[in-house]
Each structure stands twice: as structure tokens, then as C-alpha cells.
Amino acid sequence: MRQVVLDTETTGLSWEKGNRIVEIGCIELLERRKTGRHFHRYFNPERDLEAGAQEVTGLSLEFLRDKPLFASAVDEFLDFIRGAELIIHNASFDIGFLDYELSRLGPHYGRIEDHATVLDTLAMARERYPGQRNSLDALCRRLGVDNTHRKLHGALLDAELLAEVYLGMTAGQADLMLVAGGDAGLVAHAGTGRLPAVVPAGPRRVLRASEAERAAHEARLEKIAGKSGGKLVWPRAESVPS
């Protein structure tokens, strides 16, 4: 699966009031691994930043005045995200601004959902950690992601941190998913990027886990459950028929 972790910075909190995007940062993941490819641009918003936005980003119109307009990079941006799953924290905010920028350029650009799907990590975090703070900084602390260098909000830096947070929230479970099918018993390990291996048809020897192995398995599940908010996608040993 190809995923793109995305963050934006804007001139203010509401695109309905004419605020604009001033920075986009994107990190590419392929089968849950960073590829090294990224998209990062600053834009001239053609308007001043609200005081709050300037304070949290450290950006100013003076810095952005000689930067290109969003229109100059829209095709490159859409090419980068096309067909991917976008991973965004508080996705409605960023998608609202991106759709607004696209609408300013004409109906032929459509909406972000015409180019990519979206996964909201804020909604995911609220489900897994109900009643707790689920800001990006709070999730970094909870999952052991080093964010001590985050003094100001920046789209590329925040996308880098969000990539680590997302991988931490989903650690363990995606790597153990198996996809099977066909008479020959094709088995693919999700996340390896390798072609499926062929398992020969016919009788198979069944190996039962020892007590020590079952205990080690349970200890591993406890560790994964702690990272994923207590939710597991496979059954515990006691619920598996012997």
C-alpha cells in the first residue's frame, strides 16, 4: 500500500474567511516504510497571516512574498498524492483548505477525494485513547516519538512526526496480516513488498506450540495491546481451538 503523510500550515483557522495555505509537507510510505520521497513547498498566500498563525509557525508575509503561488505547484502536488491513502491529523482541517485552494483554480481539479483516500489519525487516536489528549505533541509523548526539536509548527516536520506516530499506533498488527487464496494456497505477507510465496497443496503437518511458546506469545500480545489501545485483530491463545 502506498500512503502519504500530509500536513499543511495556513494563514488562519478558517478557509471560509479567505485564509490560505502557506506550506504543504508530505512524506511517502510504501508498505509502511519511508521511501525517502517527499513533497514540500512554501506558498505566497497573497494575504497577511493572522497573529495566531504567525506565532505558531514563525512565518510571515515578508518571508512568503517571493514564494510561488499554489497554482504553480498544484499539478506536481496532485501527482504526488494521486492514488495514495493520505494520513492526516485532524483531516477535515487540511482537506477543507486543500479543497478550497483547488476550487479557486477551477472545477476541473475536483476535490482531494477525487485523487486520494483519507485516514484521519485524530479520529483513530480518539477511538484508541478516549478521554485523553490526542494532539500531535501528546501522541508523540505517549508513543515515545522524540519531538523535542519541534519549537514551531512546520508542515514537513509535522508530517515526519505524524508518520512516526501513525506507525507507532498501528505497530505489530499490520505486519501479521496474511492474505490467502487459490487452490495452491498462495500466501502473501502484508508489508514485505515481496511476491506471494506458493505453499504446496496436500496434507500438512500441524505443529502445536509448547507452553513456553504460548507464554511468549501472550507476552508479545500484551506488549502490542498496550501500544494499540488494547485492541487486537487476532484472537488470544485461549480462544484458538487446539
Score class of each variant (00 low, 15 high):
2 R>S: 08
3 Q>C: 07
4 V>I: 15
5 V>A: 04
5 V>D: 00
5 V>P: 01
6 L>D: 03
8 T>F: 00
9 E>W: 01
11 T>W: 03
11 T>G: 05
12 G>Q: 02
13 L>F: 08
20 R>L: 09
22 V>C: 11
22 V>A: 09
23 E>I: 13
25 G>V: 08
25 G>R: 02
26 C>M: 01
26 C>L: 07
26 C>F: 01
28 E>W: 04
29 L>H: 07
31 E>S: 13
32 R>G: 13
34 K>E: 15
34 K>T: 15
35 T>D: 07
36 G>C: 06
36 G>R: 03
38 H>S: 14
39 F>E: 01
43 F>M: 12
45 P>W: 06
46 E>G: 10
47 R>I: 14
53 A>E: 02
54 Q>P: 01
54 Q>V: 05
55 E>N: 08
60 S>R: 06
63 F>S: 13
66 D>R: 11
71 A>M: 08
73 A>D: 14
73 A>V: 14
75 D>L: 08
76 E>V: 10
78 L>G: 10
80 F>L: 06
80 F>C: 03
80 F>K: 00
81 I>L: 03
81 I>S: 00
82 R>L: 06
82 R>M: 05
84 A>N: 09
84 A>I: 05
85 E>Y: 03
85 E>W: 04
92 S>V: 07
94 D>K: 09
98 L>R: 02
98 L>P: 00
99 D>W: 00
102 L>I: 14
105 L>K: 03
107 P>I: 10
108 H>A: 15
109 Y>S: 09
112 I>K: 01
113 E>G: 13
115 H>M: 10
120 D>A: 04
120 D>Q: 05
122 L>E: 13
122 L>V: 15
125 A>E: 08
126 R>M: 08
130 P>Q: 08
136 L>C: 14
137 D>E: 14
138 A>H: 03
139 L>Q: 01
143 L>D: 01
143 L>T: 02
143 L>I: 05
145 V>F: 04
148 T>K: 09
150 R>N: 04
150 R>E: 03
151 K>V: 15
155 A>D: 01
155 A>K: 00
156 L>G: 12
156 L>E: 08
158 D>F: 00
162 L>H: 01
165 V>W: 02
166 Y>C: 12
166 Y>N: 10
166 Y>P: 11
166 Y>V: 13
168 G>E: 06
169 M>I: 09
170 T>Y: 02
172 G>Y: 04
176 L>W: 10
182 G>S: 04
183 D>E: 13
184 A>Q: 13
184 A>K: 12
185 G>M: 02
187 V>M: 07
188 A>F: 05
191 G>E: 02
191 G>W: 01
192 T>S: 06
192 T>V: 05
192 T>L: 07
192 T>I: 07
195 L>A: 14
197 A>N: 11
198 V>Q: 13
199 V>C: 09
200 P>I: 11
201 A>W: 02
203 P>T: 11
204 R>K: 14
206 V>M: 05
208 R>C: 10
208 R>M: 11
213 E>D: 11
213 E>L: 10
213 E>G: 08
215 A>F: 03
217 H>C: 11
217 H>F: 13
218 E>K: 13
222 E>T: 15
223 K>A: 15
224 I>N: 10
224 I>P: 06
225 A>F: 02
225 A>R: 09
226 G>K: 12
227 K>G: 15
229 G>R: 02
229 G>T: 12
230 G>V: 06
233 V>D: 09
234 W>Y: 15
235 P>M: 12
236 R>T: 15
238 E>W: 05
239 S>T: 15
